[in-house]
Amino acid sequence: MLVHICCSVDSHFFIEKLQHEYPDEKLVGFFYDPNIHPYSEYRLRLLDVMRSCKKLGIELIEGPYDYENWINAVRGLEKEPEKGARCEVCFDKRFEVSAHKALELGERSMTTTLLVSPKKSQEQLIRSGEAFHTSHGVEFIAFDYRKNGGTNDQSRVSKEEQLYRQDYCGCIYGLTMQRDQQHRLMDEMFSPLSNQILPASIEERLELYTKRMELEEQNTPYRIVKERFLNYRLVRASVKSGGCVIPSYPLFYSTISRTTTEGKIDFEINGQFYLNREEVRFITCETFNALTHLDYANVKALMFSPPSIDIEIALRSHLTQSPFNTSAIMVVDVIPTAKINLILETKTYDDTKEKLIIID
């Protein structure tokens, strides 16, 4: 039987149930989910599915990430709610490819782990599956493992196995509506061109879960725990002086009370140059290098290949002598002497992130 897989939280419990109830059935996992966005999230979910299938001892095949074709398939349905018409088209798209894969492998039946997800309509899934039984000759088998406390059992299994528990379906449209309803920043879409790893980002989780797999291969005990912290995202920033934009780099946690401010350098203390407005400070790239023991040629080099966030936070703590300071600290090549116009749009917010702890 071909088992279309959407994510490890659904698939691990679902496949465990199948293996228990149908011990003689050969199961082949098929990860085909071009709806997942961004691509880093797709990679993260696939990584955890690979781990899950390895633990369960079943073969896993990855389908194509044909995201553009998926976008075209759901065009015009962007505003549909969860379990609406867009979801049905999404199921049709994924089931069509899954049915062709089943035929290619010589399988005559298929199912999907989407059936166990409480966020999905089983009626929609069954309707789509039966349509492809009629058109492709591949029998769709709808297992209902939600009933009789199944959803609670699924949650228990996901915690016991320390699976990656995403908090949105996968598609950009569902994510947008969910974050709007929650009045939350859609920080999943923040991904710096510099490839700097942001706290609580998908990229950070991808690193963590990759490291987790390495630890398991080494039989090193660990736990994944959650912790609360103050998160930060830079939306845009620029510095103008003398009518010209000059290269500048805001240290992590740099904020001002409004989006824009202006002023002139008022005084200097220990290499920090203070603006006469908004508690803004400037340091040179030379000072930045000296305090971080790095060797950037100029601010442009810093902008396109910044250090880790931990280095930036350590530098901020050193400069301000406080772990709670969020004043803007701007790195420039040369301290401006003319009037300065600063644009700094940022978001700071309470958040949670996962942390990997190695158990001695």
Rank of each mutant, 00 (worst) to 15 (best):
Y164V: 01
P336K: 05
C7Q: 02
L291N: 12
S8Q: 09
S322I: 00
R179S: 01
S201P: 03
L56N: 06
H293K: 09
L163I: 11
R127K: 14
K159W: 06
I15Y: 07
R236E: 15
V116H: 05
Q272R: 11
C244M: 12
V332M: 07
P336R: 02
R127D: 03
M330Y: 00
L175H: 09
L185H: 12
R281Y: 03
Q178M: 11
T287M: 13
F324V: 01
K120H: 11
H4M: 04
R127P: 01
L77F: 15
G243M: 06
V299T: 14
L193D: 09
M177V: 02
V157E: 10
L56M: 10
K347R: 11
N69G: 12
A328S: 07
N35M: 12
H37A: 14
H293N: 08
K120W: 08
C87S: 05
R205A: 10
D360R: 13
T337E: 06
Y22A: 03
R277N: 14
E278L: 00
D24E: 15
Y349N: 07
C169W: 10
R205F: 05
M213P: 00
Y349M: 06
L208A: 10
S194H: 07
A290M: 09
S254H: 00
G149T: 12
N276Y: 05
L44Y: 08
I358L: 10
A297S: 11
A131C: 02
Q181E: 13
A297R: 15
Y164S: 05
L275Q: 04
P81N: 07
N195K: 15
D24C: 11
Y65M: 14
H100D: 14
R179Q: 07
L198V: 06
Y253S: 01
C90S: 09
P250K: 02
H136D: 08
T320K: 04
E345A: 14
T352A: 12
D153R: 11
C90M: 13
E82N: 11
C6P: 04
L319G: 01
C244G: 01
A314N: 10
L275M: 15
F132L: 15
I359D: 13
E21Q: 13
T352H: 07
G271Q: 05
C7G: 10
T259A: 08
C53W: 00
K300R: 13
A200I: 01
V89T: 14
P192S: 11
P23L: 00
A99P: 08
I335L: 04
L114G: 09
S109T: 14
F143H: 15
Q196I: 03
F304N: 14
P250M: 05
I283V: 12
Q272N: 04
D153M: 05
L56Y: 05
S128K: 08
V3I: 15
K347Q: 06
E139H: 14
K79V: 07
V138N: 08
L46P: 02
S322G: 04
L251N: 02
G63V: 12
T259R: 03
K347Y: 01
E278D: 15
K355G: 11
V28Q: 08
P118T: 08
W70V: 06
A102D: 09
E160Q: 14
A237T: 12
S128L: 06
P118D: 10
L294K: 09
K264H: 09
T210I: 03
E130W: 05
Y173V: 05
